[in-house]
Nucleic acid binder design. Structure first.
Lengths: 192, 192
DNA sequence: CGTATTTCTTAACTTAAGTGAACGAGTTAA
DNA sequence: TTAACTCGTTCACTTAAGTTAAGAAATACG
């Protein structure tokens, strides 16, 4: 399981055995059951998440309704906004499947960063990379219809549609579950 | 005009007179007329833009239709995706108003970064900050209707609605110009 | 194993956005 | 000054998503 984390890190920087051991000694790994809420609206938290196995999601509750805006699966990292701006969180984070996560908090990161300056370089590259990805994603979302978004999802993250309940997929696409059902039926009809 | 740039930078790092002069000697400032296209789909470019005065926009052409996905106004910076991944651009960038921009290319940045390591720190903070903003923006877009998006825009960037043609605003909100007209009429009716 | 509960689908109806066309106001150019 | 063009609005019509409700399918749990 640790290998997944080190594989990920090695895409950005190379680690010595000493450095690997220092990371392992932080005891980052957490096993989390499906349905568990990791962060609630209004909470202040310092925890960042890296998904080793499973899936977590970010959602808002607006007028009593859950609005899912992101899923994070294997090899994806989530730094909640409340960690950055030190304000109460505007959203929830919860576990879609039984998952294994690497959970780090600010203190640990300060410690690691001061011991291994390499780490800061990785963070910079990572956040630049994420920013670029995020922008393309946003543009794609803006320039397409719900139906196109669903087709895109089918192409780019087909696993999600299997792993995640439809209602969460629907809200991720910006529509209601009933509309997703209908839209799926429409697509099937077109194919035949 | 330089003051705007230095004001911006001073939010992140402090510069000595020498450093300021080094930046000025790069001769970054460009005056660009309304309507000029700075980047075209398919082009490879190394140029990044910082708006000192005016407004530029990013848009795609999809099925012959312009789809505007972002506006950049005073004190906002745009690093095109093609600069990061060194691939041809998927979108256009053009000038909405007569504008004054600071235009930097990769070579200059390498030069500045090597002379003043401070600069790299600024870039890291900036991209982290942008990433956070971008995520909140994306979430807001996803969780709201065209009408709510328009109301949001009225609150958060009222100037844009004055400065930018309706059709570009409409496409930025993810709808057609006719729908924006209708939506505006609907809102006026509600108020009365 | 069967019951309860949640999740997904279907349907009928409402509302809002897309489409195509026409119109008037404002701008540009001959 | 007039003709051509652009831009925003309006209208009638179509299409897709929201809403409410009911029923089927899948899942969880005692």
């Amino acid at each position: 399981m640790q290998d997944i984390l080190f594989d990920f890190i090695s895409k950005y920087i190379s680690l010595t055995e000493d450095e690997k051991n220092a990371i392992l000694s932080l005891d980052l790994f957490r096993s989390v059951k499906k349905g568990v809420t990791l962060l609630k609206e209004g909470q202040k938290s310092q925890d960042c998440y890296f998904v080793l196995k499973g899936c977590i999601r970010k959602y808002y509750i607006i007028d009593g309704e859950e609005k899912t805006t992101a899923f994070y699966t294997e090899m994806e990292a989530l730094t909640p906004h409340c960690v950055i701006n030190k304000a109460p969180s505007e959203y929830f984070i919860s576990c879609v499947e039984d998952s294994i996560l690497a959970v780090s908090n600010s203190d640990m990161e300060v410690e690691i960063n001061s011991k291994f300056p390499k780490f800061e370089i990785m963070c910079r590259i990572l956040s630049e990379e994420l920013l670029a990805k995020q922008q393309i994603n946003f543009d794609e979302f803006k320039t397409s219809s719900p139906e196109q978004r669903y087709q895109n999802l089918l192409e780019n993250r087909p696993d999600l549609i299997q792993r995640v309940p439809q209602q969460q997929i629907a809200s991720y696409l910006g529509i209601k579950p009933q509309s997703l059902s209908r839209l799926r039926a429409r697509i099937l009809e077109k194919k035949s």
